[in-house]
Computed example of a mutant assay.
Amino acid sequence: MMGKGLKWGLGLGVAALIIGGGSYAYSQHKSQQETKTVTVGIVGDSDRRLWEYVKEDAKKEYGIDVKLKTFTDYVQPNRALADGDIDLNAFQTVNYFDTQKTKYKTELTDIGKTYVTPIRLYSDKLKSLDKIPDGATITIPNDPSNAQRALDLLEEADLLKYDHSAKLPSASDITDNPKKIKIKEVASDQSVSTLKSADAAVINTNYALDAKLDVDEALYVESVDDAHKGYFNLIAARKGTEDKQAYKDIVKAYQTEKTVKHMKDLYGTAQQPAWGKYAEK
């Protein structure tokens, strides 16, 4: 027969296993619950409107609670992501992403494309491109990626030419300027306000939409083709976290035909999907 001491010891062991197993199951459940809440950094209210729909689908289809954190500039969201203050961000183009990774040495990675918004040249004073006078002042974004994008736009519009061998081109790299246009570099989030003083301004679409500018009244619109795929927007995560199922599910919740419809309803021609079959156009 088994001694009382041995029975007591086995009982303790079984109890410990049950308690330990319960603790492990609880910690696993808690961990799973934590991964179901994902904070996404975005820029501006125009993006928020679309993400509110994505939030609903992520919750309904995958049980993920998406929390949105809105930033007002293009620098903070990548810093916040790198520091772990947010889980994902969705606001930037491929070119801007690559530039920021190099500049700040951030360990971030692209986990899915979202949309493309052709950048545009706007004016409160002029009605058409051919009305831009000699000596006009045009403002462009001052961060390297968007500055190059603005110069590409102005070159495509036959207003100037610049040195394409420049690694991070700016206004100082302009080589041909027949109208002697004055290029003024400003922070992207200040570009709309420059319409009051400048003759025209190159403005990122999210800021244009936030300011209720009519994108169809722009003086010039960037082409959307293979040469401009660096301007497709993306969802970014920290390296090492990109395989989390919740993150993959958020990308799936975004990349749907429902999102395409919401995009068209919200933004008209200002924004176009940039994933799957849409990216192959």
Rank of each mutant, 00 (worst) to 15 (best):
M2Y: 13
K4L: 10
L6Q: 11
K7Q: 13
I18H: 04
G20N: 08
G21F: 09
Y26R: 00
K30A: 13
Q32W: 08
Q33W: 08
Q33M: 11
E34Y: 07
E34H: 11
T37W: 07
G41H: 09
G41Y: 07
I42C: 10
V43Q: 07
D45W: 11
D45R: 04
S46Q: 05
K55A: 02
K59T: 01
V66S: 02
L68A: 02
T70P: 03
T72L: 06
V75Y: 14
N78P: 01
N78E: 12
A80V: 11
A80S: 15
L81E: 11
G84D: 06
D87Y: 09
N89Q: 14
F97A: 05
D98K: 15
Q100L: 12
Q100N: 07
K101V: 01
K101R: 15
K105E: 12
D110M: 12
I111R: 05
K113P: 02
T114V: 14
V116A: 11
P118S: 03
I119S: 08
D124S: 12
K125I: 03
L126Y: 08
L126W: 11
K127P: 00
L129R: 04
K131R: 14
K131S: 14
K131N: 10
I132C: 04
I132A: 03
P133A: 07
P133E: 02
D134Y: 05
P141V: 00
N142L: 03
A147Q: 14
Q148C: 00
D152S: 01
L153V: 07
L154F: 02
D163Q: 06
L168R: 07
P169Q: 11
S170N: 15
A171I: 01
T175R: 00
N177G: 06
P178M: 02
I181E: 05
K182H: 12
A187L: 13
S188H: 04
Q190V: 05
Q190T: 08
S191W: 02
S191I: 05
T194V: 09
T194I: 02
L195T: 08
A198L: 06
D199P: 10
I203S: 03
N206K: 13
Y207R: 10
D210T: 11
D210A: 05
K212Y: 07
E217V: 02
V221Q: 13
E222H: 09
S223W: 00
A227I: 00
A236L: 15
A237S: 15
K239L: 07
T241F: 12
D243R: 08
I250L: 06
K252Q: 12
E257Q: 15
K261A: 11
K264C: 02
K264A: 11
L266R: 14
A270P: 09
Q272H: 12
G276T: 09
K277D: 06
K281A: 06
K281Y: 02
